[in-house]
Design a protein around this nucleic acid. Structure first.
Lengths: 138, 138
DNA sequence: TATGTAAATGCACATGATTCGCATTTGCAT
DNA sequence: ATGCAAATGCGAATCATGTGCATTTACATA
């Protein structure tokens, strides 16, 4: 497995399970669920218990190294490295693939949102539709 | 309890539990979870089992009478009557109150989204922050 | 480098939302 | 009124996730 090895999060003790989880996330092409991470670890190195993975992910999220999301009103949470980039997701309703979007429609919108007396700290945008491969009428 | 009674969904057999669920939703001031509905029913009329409520909600969603959503990456789904209005939510990070928004930032954005080859069918926008009551610095 | 200790993990089991199975009841067409 | 398919009551299953506790590990200090 290729070594990418980003900087290790500060104040986090370096253990094998944590290194495994981080490594999987570094090599991931899209956000992964805890279960995804679990199965990808098993392949090469040591086994890491699922509950441990949840604990590690929780820690990484807290440290800001990882971002947790859920899409499509259901099922599992997904995790990815925090690239400190404002990002949103599009989910294919057919194959469930998750496509990350880079441009954000909220930039111009949020500032004029004080009308409801709601102080916006953050937001989440999610789109659903067909990815290139699944579109029945492209 | 005041009678609002919207039209009964077509092709849906009229039963007491279904009428209860619909009535609760008609009187709700914000989207409710299945459990919320459960406890609001107990008060006045008959008891409806939680699993039945889930089945009823599933049916109503399928018939288009009810809209199901989840907010803030969290566990429970919330349900509300479908007012056939494009709507998004803002969630207060302090009291968890859900405020519905009427204007939508996506209208101008979605059309020019074909760049990723993604065919957008729908979207979801969610904001989090402080509601009027909880804002520490208004 | 050895080692004591707090923190992390393995493991099994708890939990909370949601769903499922099946016997009983109910709405409604006849 | 009554028969039957559909809905519900009820319990128990499921699935993602969290927790408790004994054991192991990383790392500071000697």
């Amino acid at each position: 497995m290729k070594e990418i090895q980003t900087v290790w999060p500060v104040g986090v003790k370096k253990t094998k399970p944590r290194a495994c989880v981080l490594s999987v996330l570094e090599h991931a092409e899209s956000p992964l669920s805890a279960m995804d991470i679990y199965s990808r670890i098993e392949k090469d190195t040591s086994t890491v218990w699922l509950s441990t993975i949840y604990r590690i992910l929780e820690l990484f999220v807290e440290k800001g190294v990882v971002v947790k999301t859920t899409v499509m009103n259901n099922e599992m949470a997904i995790y990815e490295l925090n690239h400190y980039q404002h990002k949103h997701y599009a989910v294919c309703v057919s194959c469930r693939k998750i496509v990350a979007m880079n441009n954000c429609p909220m930039e111009k919108f949020v500032p004029k949102l004080a009308d409801n007396g709601f102080h916006v700290l953050g937001h989440k945008v999610e789109m659903y539709g067909y990815c290139k491969e699944c579109d029945p009428n492209p």
